[in-house]
């Protein structure tokens, strides 16, 4: 079963060194779960200052600056994993370095028919 691990943190509270360390540790984790067959994808995201939101209403498009909602913690990256059950997913989520600073939201993925295969 697939789980999306969404990493939330206060993006302004992170120093450049901490960010670099986080990338190194996250890459290491990705390699480890790849070896155990649980890795599907992972990426950090640029801060919300680079975000653009798009809405289409009545056929007309509205493009605005910034994230969908202003929140205390922002989405900073994700892991998409394959795990047997929620306990296994939790086991991986606690190894994500940003779980120690922000939080990791675990969302089960819905499998729908007709999506292109990997």
């Amino acid at each position: 079963m697939k789980y999306m691990l969404l990493i939330y943190l206060d993006e302004l509270a992170l120093s450049e060194t901490e960010r670099e360390e986080c990338y190194v540790e996250s890459t290491q984790l990705a390699q480890e779960i790849k070896a155990s067959g649980q890795y599907l994808a992972a990426h950090p995201l640029h801060p919300t200052s680079t975000a653009t939101s798009v809405r289409v209403r009545g056929g007309k498009r509205f493009v605005t600056d910034g994230p969908f909602a202003e929140t205390r913690e922002q989405l900073g990256g994700y892991f998409l994993i394959d795990a047997r059950d929620l306990d296994e997913a939790i086991g991986i989520a606690v190894r994500i370095p940003m779980a120690r600073k922000g939080s990791v939201e675990i969302r089960p993925v819905i499998e729908i028919a007709g999506l292109p295969a990997d």
Partner: peptide, 14 residues
């Protein structure tokens, strides 16, 4: 059911 919370006794570590 949807998040697949397992039906198991946790491991000794947990």
């Amino acid at each position: 059911r949807d998040a697949r919370i397992p039906y198991q006794v946790p491991s000794v570590a947990d």
